[in-house]
Computed example of a mutant assay.
Amino acid sequence: MTTELSKSSSQSDVRRGGRTGAAAVEFALVAPLLIVLLLGVVVYGGWFWLSHSVQSLASESARAALGGLDADEQRSLAEGFVQRHGGPELGLDPALTTVAFASDPDALTVSVTYEASGHPLMLLAGPLPRPPSRIRRTAVVRTGGY
């Protein structure tokens, strides 16, 4: 009985000894895919964050423009809001932000465009398919014509 037991334990030792590097090989095969997947999550998550920041900036600048008495003052208020509040706290560079303003009797329209091609998150993309480098978001505030 003891010979049978020792024989089976030695066979399992041989089997286990042959698999000592299997985990390392499997990790070497899976790691590049995992790294690319994680990098994609970071890049696209950052792009969505930038996109949301631009939309928020457009909405708030449209609300700020409501205080103006005429179209020129409204334009000035919208552009001033973007320059004052579109900074690092939103992850944006005000120098890369442009504002388009339109006004008619029924609505104010503010479009904010951000050139994100030089942003560190976009540079991190490397060989991944990149999201659009120009982010443009528009906000409309109705002023009449209900």
Rank of each mutant, 00 (worst) to 15 (best):
V54I: 00
S56G: 11
S56Y: 00
A58Q: 06
S59P: 13
E60Q: 12
E60N: 10
A62M: 08
A62T: 13
A62Y: 05
R63A: 03
R63D: 12
A65W: 09
A65V: 13
A65S: 15
L66E: 14
G67P: 07
G67L: 14
G67E: 14
G67R: 15
G68P: 11
L69I: 11
A71L: 12
D72H: 10
D72S: 15
E73L: 11
E73F: 04
Q74F: 04
Q74L: 01
Q74K: 15
Q74H: 09
R75K: 08
R75Y: 10
S76M: 10
L77I: 07
L77M: 11
A78E: 09
A78K: 08
E79C: 06
G80N: 04
V82T: 02
Q83H: 01
R84N: 03
H85N: 12
H85T: 03
G86V: 05
G87C: 10
P88D: 13
P88Y: 11
P88F: 09
L90P: 05
G91F: 02
G91L: 04
L92K: 02
L92M: 11
D93N: 13
D93K: 05
D93Y: 02
P94C: 02
A95P: 00
L96P: 00
T97M: 09
T97S: 08
A100W: 12
A100P: 02
S103R: 15
D104K: 10
D104E: 11
D106G: 10
D106W: 01
A107N: 09
L108D: 05
T109C: 07
V110D: 00
V110G: 02
S111H: 01
V112S: 01
T113Y: 04
Y114A: 00
Y114M: 03
E115P: 01
E115H: 08
A116K: 05
S117H: 08
G118T: 02
H119R: 03
H119D: 14
H119A: 10
H119S: 03
P120H: 07
P120S: 04
L121C: 05
M122T: 10
M122P: 05
M122W: 11
L124Y: 07
L124R: 09
L124D: 07
G126Y: 04
P127N: 04
L128C: 11
P129Q: 14
P129L: 11
P129M: 14
P131N: 13
P131A: 09
P131Y: 09
P132R: 01
S133E: 14
